[in-house]
Amino acid sequence: MTKKLVPDPPTSSPVPIAAHDLNHFEMQLNQVYDVLRCATAIAYECADNLQGQPRDLAMGSMHLIGHARKMVHELLDQLQPVVPDTDGLAN
C-alpha cells in the first residue's frame, strides 16, 4: 500500500463568535450581500447595451460578483453563536 503524499484539506467548521457580536457581523455581511446584488444589476444593465469584448467584460464582472455573493452566503451559513455553559464559560 502506498502512502498518500498530500494530506486532506481541513474541513470547514463554524466560526465561533460571541452572541452580542454575531448580530452586528451578520448585519454587515448582509449589507455586503446587498451591495453585491446591486453591482450585479448594474453589470447586467451595462452588458445589455454592449456588444463584443466590452459585453464579455461586463458579463465577466457579473460572474465574479456571483462568486463573491456565494462566498458571503457561505460565511453567513457558518456563523453560529457561542452559547455559555452552566459555569458561565463560553463553549
Rank of each mutant, 00 (worst) to 15 (best):
M1T: 15
T2F: 15
T2Y: 12
K3H: 07
K4C: 03
K4Y: 00
L5D: 04
L5H: 02
L5S: 01
V6Q: 01
V6S: 14
V6Y: 08
P7Y: 00
D8Q: 12
D8K: 15
P9D: 00
P9N: 03
P10W: 07
S12K: 00
S12V: 02
S13M: 02
P14T: 10
P14Y: 11
V15F: 12
I17E: 03
I17N: 11
A19M: 07
A19G: 05
H20I: 09
H20R: 08
D21L: 15
H24P: 06
H24S: 12
F25N: 00
E26L: 13
M27V: 12
Q28I: 05
L29Q: 08
L29M: 14
N30V: 12
N30M: 13
V32D: 08
V32G: 03
V32M: 02
Y33D: 13
Y33N: 10
D34L: 10
V35N: 09
V35G: 09
L36Y: 07
L36E: 05
L36H: 06
R37Y: 10
C38W: 10
A39N: 09
A39W: 07
I42W: 05
I42F: 10
Y44P: 04
C46M: 10
A47K: 07
A47Q: 13
N49K: 14
N49T: 13
L50Y: 02
L50D: 01
L50Q: 02
Q51D: 10
G52I: 09
Q53D: 14
L57D: 10
L57G: 01
M59G: 06
G60R: 14
G60V: 14
H63R: 10
L64V: 03
I65Q: 05
I65V: 06
I65G: 06
I65D: 04
H67S: 07
A68V: 01
A68K: 01
A68M: 02
A68S: 04
R69Y: 01
R69M: 11
R69P: 02
M71S: 05
V72Q: 01
V72H: 00
H73A: 14
L75N: 07
L76D: 07
L76Y: 03
L76R: 14
D77W: 03
Q78G: 04
Q80C: 00
P81I: 11
P81N: 02
V82H: 05
V82C: 01
V83K: 15
P84F: 12
D85Y: 04
D85E: 00
D85Q: 02
T86M: 14
T86Y: 07
D87K: 06
D87E: 15
D87V: 01
D87R: 12
L89S: 08
A90H: 11
A90Q: 12
N91E: 10
N91S: 08
